[in-house]
């Protein structure tokens, strides 16, 4: 059995963002990068499946981007992926979801994976398009936003998260692609011996231009800080004064604490 997990490196979402010189993406220098949160769950689920099947499946981790994305490929290898693929593309931030899906699909087509895992979306762009579009290009069945996953002899039973605490139960057969929501499992931290072992695992680098030259279907024309629309007040100062002010505000604006 062959498994693939696709991961993305994103900046810490608590960062202060500002537009870069192009005006259509944010300034990347000075930002701290890590694995997209949803992809942590995708990697964990792929490793759990490999373990469930006695270690038999061959599990590849793939990431697209500049040199720095090798860091998260190494993390996934330390968690339990067998081999890494780095689709080298310094300009990935300026590619649209269709182009990124085309890179994944064109790579995966030759490899005949049984099951592909992705996060349900990225935290920076959050389009939630790439996984499903890659599945559509491959002609794979796909299910999205999974908070439950079981696998038995080619049959996947997934719990899709809907709104208001409701979940949908779906069944699909391999070959398939599933997108993973947070809470699906409990992602592990890589253990030190596994970090050392991972250093010996192969990471293959493929230039993006070798895989796909698909044209973009959408283009970002501008990135900007949204105007503040909030009409609330902002309180700053020392903690005890702030506590007094908050209590007064609660008294003035609610029926409480009187």
């Amino acid at each position: 059995m062959k498994l693939l997990v696709c991961i993305k490196q994103i900046p810490d979402m608590e960062s202060q963002f500002k537009p870069d010189e192009s005006g259509s993406w944010f300034e990347e220098s000075g930002l701290v990068y890590r694995m997209n949160e949803y992809d942590d769950y995708a990697v964990e689920q792929a490793v759990l499946l490999k373990e469930q099947l006695g270690g038999e499946p061959d599990l590849t981790v793939l990431s697209i981007g500049p040199d720095r994305v090798v860091e998260i490929i190494k993390k996934a290898l330390a968690i339990g992926c067998d081999r890494g693929v780095h689709i080298h593309d310094p300009a990935v931030a300026h590619k649209d979801p269709w182009q990124i899906a085309s890179l994944i699909a064109n790579f995966a087509k030759e490899q005949h994976y049984d099951l592909i895992f992705t996060g349900m979306q990225s935290q920076d762009r959050g389009s939630a398009q790439v996984g499903v579009m890659a599945a559509e290009q491959l002609g794979y069945a796909s299910a999205t936003t999974l908070v439950g996953f079981t696998y038995h002899e080619g049959l996947i039973t997934g719990l899709c998260e809907l709104e208001g605490g409701l979940k949908g139960i779906v069944k699909l057969r391999t070959p398939a692609l599933v997108t993973c929501q947070s809470g699906l499992n409990t992602p592990r931290y890589p253990a030190l011996p596994n970090i050392l072992k991972a250093k010996k695992k192969e990471i293959r680098t493929i230039p993006a231009s070798d895989l796909s030259r698909a044209a973009a279907l959408t283009a970002t024309t501008r990135i900007f800080k949204p105007e503040k629309k909030g009409s609330g007040i902002i309180l700053e100062g020392d903690t005890s004064t702030l506590a007094d002010r908050v209590i007064n505000l609660i008294r003035e604006n609610t029926t409480l604490l009187r």
Partner: peptide, 24 residues
């Protein structure tokens, strides 16, 4: 809608028609 239903279905339509999608 950018809901569980729309998020799931929209990219399938965009990919089938090979047209651009804008999300959320």
């Amino acid at each position: 809608l950018h809901s569980s239903y729309g998020r799931d279905l929209a990219p399938r339509i965009a990919a089938s028609l090979r047209i651009g999608q804008v999300s959320e």
